[in-house]
Design a binder for these strands. Sequence first.
DNA 1: CCGGTTGCTTGAATCGTTTCAAGTCAGACA
DNA 2: TGTCTGACTTGAAACGATTCAAGCAACCGG
Lengths: 361, 361
Amino acid sequence: MSGKVKMVTMRDVAQASGFSPATVSIVLNNAPLARYIAPATKKRIEDAAKKLGYRPNAMARFLRSRRSQTVGVMIFDITDPFCTPVLRGIENALYQSSYVPIFADAHNQRTRFERYLEMLLEHHVEALIVVANWLFVDIQLLADLSKRNITAATIGWEVPGDSVSSVMVDNEAGGRLALEHLHHLGHRKIAVIRGPKMLIDSGPRWKGIQKFANSVGLEMDPSLVVQLPDELEANSGFDGGYRFTEELLERKKKFTAVLAFDDLTAFGAIRALTKAGIKVPEQCSVVGFDDVPLSALSAPSLTTVRQPLEAMGNLAVNLVVEGIKAGLEKRDWSISRHKMTPELVIRDSTKAVEGGKDLTK
Amino acid sequence: MSGKVKMVTMRDVAQASGFSPATVSIVLNNAPLARYIAPATKKRIEDAAKKLGYRPNAMARFLRSRRSQTVGVMIFDITDPFCTPVLRGIENALYQSSYVPIFADAHNQRTRFERYLEMLLEHHVEALIVVANWLFVDIQLLADLSKRNITAATIGWEVPGDSVSSVMVDNEAGGRLALEHLHHLGHRKIAVIRGPKMLIDSGPRWKGIQKFANSVGLEMDPSLVVQLPDELEANSGFDGGYRFTEELLERKKKFTAVLAFDDLTAFGAIRALTKAGIKVPEQCSVVGFDDVPLSALSAPSLTTVRQPLEAMGNLAVNLVVEGIKAGLEKRDWSISRHKMTPELVIRDSTKAVEGGKDLTK
DNA sequence: CCGGTTGCTTGAATCGTTTCAAGTCAGACA
DNA sequence: TGTCTGACTTGAAACGATTCAAGCAACCGG
């Protein structure tokens, strides 16, 4: 019961099957040389391995072959609902490729990011995936990783230079989608809560909004446009949405819809509106961005611009796995930058403007 | 630029400092023997290591010392909002102890669980933490792990036998808390949505409810009590809450409050009530269980029984870390089972019953 | 009967660290 | 002068796999 189980090594399998460790290794890994091995031999070795319950020792293997079967997954803050589906996508794709994720959560802190990077390097991850926000513009990352030729990919952020692939959503198209929806519903007085300046997403989203506004001759009242501050707190989006909406209400400016930077901000806005006795969506529509998991469950459920988060996680994995392969085969390989197309998800938080006609029908 | 960076090994540090690899190892690890090493030597070695940017190779180290600095974290479904705070707690505590988490998400599938277990063993995790639900009663886990003396702890589930520690919430106290709150608010006709039979939490929560009801002479109308089916789907709680609430409404039974099995179920209930034109909390109170992150953000925010999820993650880590230490020092060590006390969080989804008086004041 | 092929298998080096038993050396003591 | 203490330091053997160059038969054609 308490007796320690001696580890079954390749040597044991060799002994049991009557072949040498070299042969066992070749067979069990289906190495190139395996095509010279007699089928009967293969069978005997495989049987022996199974019977003994042989499990390769990933560490020992790494030492010789330099393959750790491990990928670092660095997340800026798992507490942010944005991250969960992305993580799911990453995990799932890695699983398909038989890589194991080493999980690192930076808690939005640079020092923590750096320490984790160190740890990941010590563990010789074969690649790194970073789900990032503004914090992570890091020369270190570029220099250290590409020199050690560890392929890396970021999700939700781009690193300057040509050493890191990236996967993002097409923010401009998303911004456009959001405003287009509200416009079609007949909204003309629309409050916009822009994202923090330092976030890479904020600019393009706003640009998409403006472009659409121009294209249909819609005037965006500057006094209805506010911008979230550069904040790192977990729920700063929610708080910001709440505060700014309150503020707008106090200013007595009239608006029939709020276009929020992201879902959390939208929830904050809804909270503020509800508290002020304004019904969503009857008296004011609210649209978010991201489609985080809560958005479908909240009351009212949130109309939002969906980022294909899980697919983005998937894609990032495929990119780095390609990079690993290329490195192994000494092929050339260059990074790529991707923009996924967002999708409008219409739920219960938006409605045709009171008295206006729903132009979507 | 493209030149590969040769790894800096201990040998290099030895060379640079003029000592042998053995000495370097002793110094850099601050091994027991280090107390015999001259301070000047230590300094020279440490300087050399720093100058060369030496980073120990975790794999090579493991091979000799059997320490992988790695802990497996198996989660039943990261998509479940319950898991996020727990994961945060685990990650944070591991980070403090300089362990690196290997992340595994079973997607609620047994086969996936087993394959991941295999992978974790290949990577020689020093311990395993399982955030579990009903799926994971697994003899394998007990046998394989304790025999290979890998300490393990589960969160949210108990494994029979004496080989796995566990951390749970005191469900009975929680159930009591929830009903007590509604009762104090004057509610007497209370619908209860019980958890699935196969979930370990369901029984004790219901028991806590019944006990409190008895203690105050409250009669729980059996026709107002329903039970969620054994479902594995991600949002089955939400759907169940929605469906059962709809059903109760159709039956025209009167009730002024819903005590839901967990927060997701509560959200489902709120959705159904809202859809039927019943205002929460004005016409019907709803109380959940867990306090998942969304609960604070939803409109109305959810009154719920809080599980200290992050603390539970922390505790689980502390348990296994203790186990690892004990194993290293060949001390005896026995598993433990913990029940954390839940806490009532009063938010906006509950209110004194219409016409009744709020007894909490 | 020899040299060359083909088909299959393996010896031995290697990866980067840790771990002791065993070394060296200077000075103290007898 | 010889021996004995420390006080430091290190040689060399693991750990468990991978990887080639090299080995061994057996067979074939000439």
